[in-house]
Simulated scan of single mutants.
Amino acid sequence: MGLNLNNSFLLLLSCIILAISLPVSGRPATFLEDFQVTWSDSHIKQLDGGRTIQLVLDQNSGCGFASKRKYLFGRVSMKIKLVPGDSAGTVTAFYLNSDTDTVRDELDFEFLGNRSGQPYTVQTNVFAHGKGDREQRVNLWFDPSQDFHDYQIRWNHKEIVFLVDDTPIRVYKNNEAKNVPYPKSQPMGVYSTLWEADDWATRGGLEKIDWSKAPFLAYYKDFDIEGCAVPGPADCASNPRNWWEGTAYQGLNALEARRYRWVRMNHMIYDYCTDKSRYPVPPPECTAGI
């Protein structure tokens, strides 16, 4: 019995030491532990004891929320159930933003509403040191309004990966060697909004929002932030022991690479890299591959 108690004590002590040594924040139990409403409190409802959030868009207002802290490198994921039915003209966004003006960094998921029966489009964009205009669009291969799906942004010194249900849909590599800016010095907050953008969101603004279908509802749950919180330990962001900096996350593994090619071959509908009207010469980061 004494030996078992000693072993149990040692195991508990090891867990405590490990927890203290990890310079990251983990999954909160409820929305309000890590997030706060930033726009139209009356349009955001907490469900299931704060574990699920409902965002509401009507003719009066959209709404939004943001993390209480900013983070430098790591992984952020949320499970989202998007606006069902005729959602044309609506945009549900999940993104990271440095909240700085001329040199802002930003990593975007924007879900563009549709007319009933058409595929949902997700637009991603990367802003680095104030430079954006790097849009890519993918038609989702499932109906994201019928159930929750996981949307994730993985960010380290080598690359940024956007994932849908663990399938990469976009990779943005660190190409500073080619004089391409890369977000690595500004911490970013985690944001989400539901708003009206029928001047551009659906078929370039041709499809307008049908307010008779309002209110438009989106749902969020399983908020997961693992990263270097700011303010926090100054050496966290440069710590090579952070799991997201490990060799397994320096590039896509074989399965991820195969899924990534499948998405790009079968579901990508726009890529700024191949838009010759905007970029007669492709930007240098476009030749990086995966």
Rank of each mutant, 00 (worst) to 15 (best):
N7V: 13
N7Y: 05
L11W: 09
L13G: 03
A19D: 08
P28M: 13
T30E: 15
F35M: 11
V37G: 05
T38N: 05
W39P: 03
S42C: 04
I44T: 15
K45Q: 12
L47C: 06
D48V: 08
G50R: 02
R51F: 00
I53C: 03
Q59T: 10
S61P: 04
G64W: 14
F65R: 03
R69C: 04
R75Q: 12
S77K: 11
K79N: 08
K79I: 01
L82F: 02
V83W: 04
P84V: 12
D86K: 13
S87V: 10
A88Q: 09
T90K: 07
T92D: 08
Y95K: 10
L96I: 07
S98G: 10
D99F: 06
T100M: 10
V103M: 11
V103Q: 13
E106H: 00
D108Y: 01
L112K: 13
G113A: 04
N114Y: 03
N114G: 03
R115A: 02
T124K: 01
T124A: 02
T124H: 03
N125F: 01
F127S: 02
K131A: 08
G132Y: 01
D133M: 02
R134H: 09
E135W: 00
F142M: 11
F142I: 03
F148M: 03
I153E: 12
E159R: 09
I160V: 06
V161Y: 02
V161K: 11
T167S: 09
A177D: 15
N179P: 02
N179C: 03
K184R: 13
S185E: 14
Q186W: 07
P187C: 04
E196F: 00
A197C: 05
A201I: 06
T202G: 06
W211Q: 09
F216K: 04
Y220A: 06
K221P: 11
I225C: 09
I225N: 06
E226S: 13
E226P: 00
P231D: 12
P231V: 03
G232C: 08
A234D: 12
A234G: 05
S238R: 07
S238L: 05
N239Y: 03
R241W: 07
W244P: 00
T247A: 15
T247K: 14
L252G: 06
L252N: 11
N253C: 07
A257D: 09
A257T: 11
R259D: 14
R259I: 00
M265P: 00
I269T: 15
Y270A: 05
Y272N: 06
Y272F: 10
Y272S: 09
K276N: 13
S277G: 15
P283Y: 00
P283G: 04
C286E: 10
